[in-house]
Every structure is written in C-alpha cells, then in structure tokens.
Simulated assay, not measured.
Amino acid sequence: MATALNVQCTKCAKSAGIATCNGCLAKLCRRCFNDHRQDLLKEFDNVVYAHDILKQKLETPNKNDSHRLLKQIDEWKKDSVDKINQLAEQCRTDVIILLDKNKDELIDRFRKISNRVHKGRDDEDYVERDLSKWMADLKELTDELIKPSNFRIEEDKQSPWIQKIRVREDIHDQAKVKDGKWWFNFVNKQI
C-alpha cells in the first residue's frame, strides 16, 4: 500500500512527488521543485525587466521624431511634397509649351497687322477708323501675350490630388475621456 500513496514526479518520473506547484499543479520531488522555483525566478526576472523597460518608455517625453506614427506623418509629408513638385514641373512644362505656341500664333497675327500698318503708311491710305482698329488689334495682342485666353490653370476641387491624412482616436474599453483627459481604469497598480 505504500506504493499506492507514492506520487510520481512530473519532471523526473521518480516516485517521490512530495510537493504540488499551486500555479501549474505539477507534482514534483524536492529537487525538481527547487529547479521549478529557479525557472519561475528567471521568468519573474524577465517580467521585471519588461516592466522596467516599459516604465522607462512611459516616462520618456515624446519627441518630434521618436514615434513611428510621427515618422509616418513625416513620410506622408515628404511623399506629398514630392508629388506636388512633380506635378508643378509637369504643369510648368505644359505652360511653357502652350506659351510658345500662343506666341507663335500672336507673331503670325502681329505680322498681318504690321503689314497693314506699313501698307497704310507707305500708301498714305488710312483713316481714323483704321488707326483705332490697328491700335485695338495691338492692344488685344498685348493682352493675349500677358494673359492668354486659350488656356488657364485651374484646380480640381472635386477630387483632391493629394490624399488627406488624419489622426483617428480609437477609444478602448478600459479608457474613458472625462473633461478632455484620459482616465484609465487600473485596479490600484503602481508602475
């Protein structure tokens, strides 16, 4: 009957299981129980280390570039500025091409006006109405040179080119906002 009461050690399988761990309910001999406690002590040291690291991070003030979310915003800003610069360069190139084309057309129209003015002067064949018409044509060409009427720059208000980002606040069950401040429901725990 003495053998029926002997409990086997969970770790070494000896029939000397004299202690039960209340945490894992393992039946252990004295030597394995002491080893088990040493393992628990090592795990406890890991918990204390993780605790201290987290405490240090919580006590360190946030810097402008230290958090990954702040880095994400900086990356979005850089990408957006790059896209704006690319689009501005493309628009600038397009405008220069259109200005050159417009100028060529204006030069052609100017030559026609110039020929009429020279012919009128050479033939001494002009009246007040001709002078007014030529002056109006020259003013129109000048205005077209300064502010072309055949193209313009416009902003697309319907679909923004740059994607807007925003910060979204997710409220967790353990946290409540009261008077604009966070209140966490901790049960008397110290860090």
Rank of each mutant, 00 (worst) to 15 (best):
residue 1 M to F: 07
residue 2 A to H: 10
residue 7 V to M: 07
residue 8 Q to H: 02
residue 9 C to A: 04
residue 9 C to M: 03
residue 9 C to H: 03
residue 11 K to A: 07
residue 12 C to P: 02
residue 12 C to G: 05
residue 16 A to P: 00
residue 16 A to L: 13
residue 18 I to M: 08
residue 19 A to C: 06
residue 20 T to W: 01
residue 21 C to E: 11
residue 21 C to I: 06
residue 23 G to R: 15
residue 24 C to K: 02
residue 26 A to W: 00
residue 27 K to A: 10
residue 27 K to I: 14
residue 27 K to H: 13
residue 28 L to Y: 05
residue 28 L to W: 05
residue 29 C to E: 10
residue 31 R to Y: 12
residue 35 D to I: 09
residue 36 H to M: 09
residue 39 D to G: 04
residue 40 L to P: 01
residue 41 L to H: 11
residue 42 K to C: 06
residue 42 K to Y: 10
residue 43 E to P: 01
residue 43 E to L: 09
residue 46 N to R: 04
residue 48 V to P: 01
residue 52 D to Q: 11
residue 53 I to G: 02
residue 53 I to T: 05
residue 53 I to K: 04
residue 54 L to I: 01
residue 55 K to Q: 03
residue 56 Q to L: 02
residue 56 Q to S: 06
residue 56 Q to F: 01
residue 58 L to K: 08
residue 58 L to W: 07
residue 63 K to Y: 05
residue 64 N to D: 09
residue 65 D to W: 07
residue 66 S to P: 03
residue 68 R to W: 10
residue 69 L to H: 14
residue 71 K to M: 12
residue 73 I to T: 12
residue 78 K to F: 03
residue 78 K to D: 06
residue 80 S to G: 13
residue 82 D to S: 13
residue 83 K to S: 10
residue 83 K to V: 00
residue 84 I to W: 01
residue 84 I to K: 06
residue 85 N to I: 10
residue 86 Q to H: 13
residue 87 L to C: 05
residue 88 A to G: 01
residue 91 C to S: 05
residue 93 T to D: 07
residue 96 I to R: 11
residue 98 L to Y: 00
residue 100 D to F: 08
residue 102 N to H: 07
residue 102 N to D: 07
residue 102 N to R: 07
residue 104 D to K: 05
residue 105 E to Q: 06
residue 107 I to M: 01
residue 107 I to P: 00
residue 109 R to L: 07
residue 110 F to N: 06
residue 110 F to C: 11
residue 111 R to S: 12
residue 113 I to C: 04
residue 114 S to L: 15
residue 115 N to T: 14
residue 116 R to Q: 14
residue 116 R to S: 13
residue 119 K to N: 12
residue 119 K to C: 02
residue 121 R to M: 10
residue 122 D to H: 06
residue 122 D to V: 02
residue 123 D to S: 10
residue 124 E to M: 10
residue 130 D to T: 08
residue 132 S to F: 07
residue 133 K to H: 09
residue 134 W to D: 04
residue 134 W to I: 05
residue 134 W to S: 04
residue 134 W to M: 08
residue 137 D to I: 07
residue 138 L to V: 14
residue 139 K to L: 14
residue 139 K to R: 15
residue 141 L to E: 14
residue 144 E to N: 10
residue 146 I to W: 00
residue 150 N to I: 00
residue 151 F to R: 03
residue 151 F to V: 03
residue 151 F to E: 03
residue 151 F to L: 02
residue 151 F to T: 02
residue 151 F to M: 03
residue 151 F to H: 03
residue 153 I to F: 15
residue 154 E to P: 00
residue 155 E to P: 00
residue 155 E to K: 15
residue 157 K to V: 15
residue 157 K to S: 15
residue 158 Q to L: 15
residue 159 S to V: 14
residue 160 P to H: 08
residue 161 W to H: 13
residue 161 W to M: 14
residue 161 W to Y: 15
residue 162 I to H: 04
residue 163 Q to N: 14
residue 164 K to Y: 06
residue 165 I to P: 02
residue 169 E to T: 14
residue 169 E to P: 00
residue 170 D to L: 12
residue 170 D to R: 11
residue 170 D to E: 12
residue 171 I to L: 15
residue 172 H to F: 09
residue 172 H to Y: 10
residue 174 Q to V: 07
residue 175 A to P: 00
residue 176 K to M: 08
residue 177 V to S: 09
residue 182 W to F: 09
residue 183 W to E: 11
residue 183 W to K: 12
residue 185 N to K: 10
residue 186 F to L: 09
residue 187 V to T: 13
residue 188 N to L: 08
residue 188 N to G: 11
residue 189 K to W: 08
residue 191 I to K: 11
